[in-house]
């Protein structure tokens, strides 16, 4: 990350987008630094794509301030578009051109494009370079999308759910490619449903729920300290599930040996587990807490 630059690559203040009076994006503030890889997480329909499409210049905002590479995307001209790369969610283009033809064509739109064959190699499509895109598999077409997004040597790359439909090996290769782009100084804004992807690639992540950014920070700190407290889980003699959160799980487990409920089993609790919440657990907790909060909020409004 380039910490010497004071201006942010992406700066968002009070962003709002209403559809027919209903807020899809409801007051987002966010800065993304030059060279940073930022992962945007959130359930479907939470406002991720709307936010990203406003940053890409595809949608107009209802209110708020947005600056992308120092330019308001609503007024971004061709010079601005030459500095960004966009990988949209999968599209259904007819694909009459070969991988190389399509990349050559797109490379021609940019002032300083990457070498087409290098890009083809970077996304691992050397053997398919002369094949028409229509004949490629879904995962291979997705790699063409990524190749088209990076061929212009963008300063800022938008990746909207880039690895959907990839097999595990292809995902690993894709992550390696993103790390290379990052090493070259590319700023990356990634939306994804895969928490491991966010953890692998993201310097920071943000969680959008119901149009609000409910948490932002390094991926390892999402959800706060308490969300990471280990869980000890076991079943008592009558089969009831017990679950306790504790910073000292070994102590708790040791104490269970003397507990009256384990007498029948010779001091060995049934179904004993010590769980450190995974990123996915923490994320799901955030989503549930936010929707419960929203429901409570709605109830209050109904009462008032």
């Amino acid at each position: 990350m380039d910490m010497t630059r004071m201006d942010a690559a992406v700066r968002i203040r009070g962003l709002r987008k209403d559809y027919a009076g209903v807020a899809a994006v409801d007051g987002i503030d966010l800065d993304i630094a030059h060279g940073e890889t930022f992962a945007l997480l959130g359930p479907n329909g939470a406002g991720k794509s709307t936010t990203v499409e406003i940053l890409e210049g595809y949608r107009l905002r209802t209110a708020g301030e947005v600056s992308v590479l120092g330019v308001d995307p609503a007024r971004g001209g061709l010079d601005w578009k030459a500095r960004i790369g966009i990988v949209l969610q999968s599209s259904g283009e007819s694909g009459q051109f070969t991988v190389r033809e399509q990349l050559r064509q797109f490379a021609g739109y940019y002032p300083r494009p990457r070498d087409v064959d290098e890009v083809i190699a970077a996304v691992g499509l050397e053997r398919q370079a002369g094949t028409r895109i229509a004949k490629l598999s879904g995962g291979q077409r997705r790699r063409v999308d990524v190749a088209l997004g990076i061929v212009g040597r963008p300063e800022l790359l938008f990746l909207d759910e880039p690895t959907t439909g990839f097999d595990p090996e292809a995902r690993r290769e894709f992550w390696a490619l993103i790390r290379r782009l990052k090493a070259e100084g590319t700023t990356i804004l990634l939306t994804t449903h895969y928490l491991d992807e966010a953890a692998q690639l993201g310097d920071r992540a943000g969680v959008i729920i119901d149009g609000r950014l409910v948490d932002v920070g390094p991926v390892a700190t999402l959800g706060g300290e308490e969300a990471r407290v280990p869980i000890v889980r076991w079943r008592t003699g009558d089969g009831t599930q017990r679950e306790v959160r504790t910073e000292r799980p070994a102590e708790l487990v040791a104490s269970l040996r003397q507990a009256p409920e384990t007498v029948d089993t010779g001091g060995e609790p049934v179904g004993l587990e010590v769980i450190r919440p995974s990123l996915e657990d923490i994320y799901l907790q955030l989503v549930h807490a936010a929707s419960a909060g929203a429901a409570a909020h709605d109830d209050e409004e109904a009462l008032a």
């Binding site: 595809y58 578009k81 599209s91 283009e93 739109y109």
Partner: peptide, 18 residues
Amino acid sequence: ATEKSDGTLKRLGGTPLS
């Protein structure tokens, strides 16, 4: 009309193509 609905124009709109 086909390019509009299959995403071709959206993709081109994100590039510096005039």
